[in-house]
């Protein structure tokens, strides 16, 4: 292969972002699936690409991973251009697509062997890595069963194991936990966290705000093919809507006293008598410590005092006007994402 020497030289010195998208655009006929999307993922970090079905997440991943050529813009993985040097990109990354891409008629071990050999790993190493990966993904006992007999969660894990056999420094995961039960989802999160600890750079797409919140260092929110917000989960939460101090009084007869006290320190207080709860807007932690000190000096007994930040769900709602997990509403512009994979989503 002609690329080896050049690419290796570049790679060894390479310290730039592991993943870079610059003004990516993808049009299918009249439909613009991805519209000027840019982001950059530093090495060893996790970017969450968050958006509803049909937002352009899959198309973006397909452009980054050389499966689709962008209409315009640049996609780079480990410094390699996805259009000019797709071979080098493929050597630097692993992809777990939305539709499970394991061979159902092969066993778990055979799937690993197939892909490992196609990467050019020596046979003995493929055998060793396969056992190791099956063990790590709790598939050791089912390693010699045909993948058709696997549950959804097992198939996902095998899919991920297959993507990891060549230990790619950059990993793309397209909705890795879609269709998984909560337990399998948490298990997969743990595996992914482990990979990141070991230095893998991750780009994952998700419709689940919770998932982005859990895994991602930075989040890019995308809707109708456009980036509508970007930042850490915390920044996004701060950006949309205010935090609130929530305070629960132990004895109902102290509720009015508590309200008066709180009202003298903040602009506005909302009272929920049945829950013995007071809510007041807060700018952040400092407000909250101030309030805590005030109540500490008073005679009022509190059950609970806390700062409630808006959830990413609230963030999404305030950014887009619709909820992230509510697919049907924003579906009308979705089909382009589905054209190449039948049966990829539910």
């Amino acid at each position: 292969m002609t690329i080896t020497t050049d690419a290796r030289a570049v790679r060894e010195r390479f310290t730039g972002p592991a993943i870079e998208a610059e003004h990516l655009v993808k049009r299918f006929g009249d439909m613009t699936a991805v519209d000027d999307v840019s982001f950059s993922v530093p090495q060893g970090t996790v970017l969450g690409l968050l958006g509803p079905n049909g937002a352009g997440k899959t198309t973006t991943v397909r452009m980054m991973t050389t499966l689709t050529v962008p209409t315009s813009g640049t996609a780079r993985v480990a410094g390699h251009d996805a259009v000019r040097d797709p071979e080098a990109v493929r050597r630097s990354m692993g992809l777990t697509g939305q539709a499970a891409t394991v061979d159902e008629m092969l066993t778990g071990r055979e799937n690993l062997r197939l892909i490992g050999s196609l990467y050019g790993l020596p046979r003995a190493e493929v055998r060793r890595l396969s056992s190791e990966l099956l063990e790590r993904f709790s598939l050791a006992e089912s390693g010699d069963k045909v993948a058709k007999e696997y549950s959804g969660g097992m198939r996902r894990r095998l899919d991920l194991a297959v993507s990891l056999i060549a230990a790619p420094p950059v990993l793309f995961l397209d909705e890795p936990t879609t269709g998984l039960d909560p337990r399998s989802r948490v298990e997969l999160w743990e595996v992914l966290s482990g990979l990141v600890r070991d230095g893998t750079t991750l780009l994952l797409t998700t419709q689940y705000l919770e998932e982005a919140d859990q895994l991602a260092d930075r989040i890019v929110v995308i809707d109708h093919g456009r980036v509508i917000a970007e930042g850490t989960a915390l920044e996004l939460k701060d950006q949309s809507g205010q935090a609130a101090i929530v305070l629960t009084v132990s004895h109902a007869d102290q509720l009015e006293e508590a309200r008066a006290l709180l009202a003298s320190h903040v602009s506005e207080v909302h009272v929920d008598e049945s829950a013995r709860q007071l809510t007041a807007p807060a700018d952040g932690l400092s407000d909250m410590t101030r309030v805590a000190a005030v109540f500490d000096r008073s005679e009022i007994v509190l059950d609970d005092l806390g700062l409630k930040r808006p959830s990413l769900d609230d963030v999404f709602l305030s950014l887009t006007g619709h909820r992230a997990e509510q697919d049907a509403g924003g579906q009308t512009e979705a089909p382009a994402e589905q054209t190449t994979h039948q049966g990829e989503s539910r």
Binding site: M1, T4, R8, R11, E12, R13, F14, T15, A18, Q43, G44, A78, R91, S92, S117, L118, Y119, G120, L121, P122, A166, A167, P168, P169, V170, D198, G199, T200, T201
Partner: peptide, 16 residues
Amino acid sequence: ATRTAVAAPAVDHRPP
């Protein structure tokens, strides 16, 4: 950690 990861990909064998 990551510099090693990106600098020395395990896909360092000759492609088959």
